[in-house]
Structures are given as structure tokens and as C-alpha cells.
Amino acid sequence: MTADLAIAWATQTERDSSDEVYQARRLDTVRIFARHLQALEPATEIPPEDVLSRRYRRIPPYPYSPDEVAALMSAAGGLRPGIRAATWRTLIGVLAVTGMRSGEACHLGHDDVDLQAGTLVIADSKFGKSRLLFLHPSTIIELRAYARVRDQMVPEPRASTFLVNSRGRPLDKYNIQHTFAALITAAGIQTPPGRRAPRLHDLRHVFAVATMLDWYRDGDNVQARLPVLSTWLGHVDPKSTYWYICKPSRNCWPWPPAGSSNSRTGGQPHD
């Protein structure tokens, strides 16, 4: 086995991926095997360590405008059966106004949603962290409306989660991507040339950036408040939250979009 053969295998993937980080991980697997094989066959070549870059490059998220969030919720209203439409409309809305992860929304239990106190508990989420989120009154109204519809359409759910699918079971955080892709098309949202298709997770990025922009407009000390946003998003520390900030010269975020509103008030999807 030669180094050239190993590199050719690592870079010629079945899906023709051009991601060097992915290719480098494939080459790592070969490198480990080559070290073992060299003990049996001295002619075996071990691929060099610096052939492929391992530098992780985050793909820019899609910056949904308030109008696009509303279009997504409208498209969700056309799903069938009715409980599916109600659940998806609520899922998109709650992600837009809280910035929680889609998996966290799928796992929300009945006891985690306190509509009297206006709070959500994200329990034992990523990195084993738990946190408390506070809801705007308009968001509470929408969640109460969903709970009534859910209880009428699925009086005996098979799940203890707040959001349920058409069979009364929890939403699958992996399968929901297929439905969301269809909603993107139905909402008329176009994927920018050369960019990845918009994701449900991008609503989290929009929330974070919009919140910081609101702070700037209000004249707040954003650096001092960044730990608050980190805690809200469930990050380990503020360093993780810095990934949500792009320099204007990189053109990652064409914000603020026309007609933008204060995301912290819950106004985007519910007004």
C-alpha cells in the first residue's frame, strides 16, 4: 500500500465530497491501518500527517428574514393532517423566538413547559447542561393555542413530549429535516448559488445575531452581555457564541434584513 493510493481513496468518496476535513478523517483511518500493516509488510507507506487540512470551517448559515419565517409557518399550516400542521407551525415559531436547538424542542416534555410562569426548561441537553428560558406573552398565547389543538386531535398521545407528530409520538430530530426541506420549497425560499440549502438549525443562528443587533441598537455593552446569550443558548462558554458573529467583510450575514423586528419579544412569528 502506497501513500498515493491511500490519498486517492480518501479523496475519492462515494458522494464525491470536496470537504477536506472529511477526507482527512478518512485518511486518518488508513494511516492507523498502515502503521499496523507496516509491521507485517515493511514496504507499506504511511500517509504524511500534513496532506489534508483538518481545519474546521463552518458553513455560513442561511439568514432568514422575518417575512421568510412567516412564509415557513404559513407553509407549515398547509400540512396534513391538522395536528401535523399545528405541530410544525409551533415548532418553527418556538425555534425562531427562543433560539433553542431543534432536538431540544423535540424533547420538550409537558412538565418542561410552564405556560403559567411563561418558562421553558431545557433539561440535560448538549454537554449535560440545563437552562431556563423565558417566553414573551405572545409566544405563551400561541403555545396555549397549540396545546388545546393537540389535546383535541390527539387525546391519548403515545408520548409525554409537548410537541407530537401525527401519531401522537415524539418528533424525530433526524426525520424532521425531510419535512423542513419540503417547507422551504413551499415557502418559495431559494438556496443561494453555491450554498447549502437552508436548515431548521439556521433559525438558531438568526435568533443569536438578531439579539446582538438589538443590543447594539439599544446602546448596550454587547461584550458584557455576551455571557447572557451564551447561557441562553446553552453554550459551554462565550467562545462558542463567537461563532455566530461574522465580520462584515466576509458577507456571511446580510443583516439586518428589511422589516426586521425585535426577536427577543417573540414578535417575528406570532404578531
Results as ranks from 00 to 15, higher is better:
M1I: 14
T2H: 12
D4R: 13
L5T: 15
L5A: 15
A8C: 11
E20W: 05
V21H: 13
Y22W: 09
Q23Y: 01
A24K: 06
A24G: 07
L27W: 05
T29E: 10
I32L: 15
A34I: 11
Q38D: 07
E41F: 10
E45Y: 07
E49D: 14
D50G: 09
R55V: 14
R55T: 13
R57G: 10
P61T: 01
A70C: 10
G77D: 08
R80E: 13
I83G: 05
R84L: 08
R84G: 04
A85T: 03
A85F: 04
W88V: 01
A96N: 06
H107Y: 11
L108F: 08
G118C: 09
G118E: 11
D124A: 13
K126T: 03
G128Y: 03
S130L: 00
S130A: 01
L133K: 00
F134K: 10
L143C: 09
R144W: 05
R144P: 03
A147I: 11
V149L: 14
R150P: 04
F162C: 05
F162G: 06
R169K: 13
R169L: 11
R169H: 09
L171T: 03
Q177G: 11
T179K: 10
A182M: 12
A187C: 03
G188Y: 09
I189F: 01
T191M: 04
G194H: 05
G194M: 05
R195L: 01
L203C: 04
A210N: 15
T211Y: 00
M212R: 07
M212Y: 02
M212W: 03
M212N: 05
M212E: 06
W215S: 07
Y216C: 13
R217G: 08
G219Y: 11
D220R: 09
P227N: 07
V228G: 02
V228N: 11
T231F: 08
Y242F: 15
Y244M: 04
Y244W: 00
W255A: 14
P257R: 02
S260K: 04
T265W: 10
P269A: 10
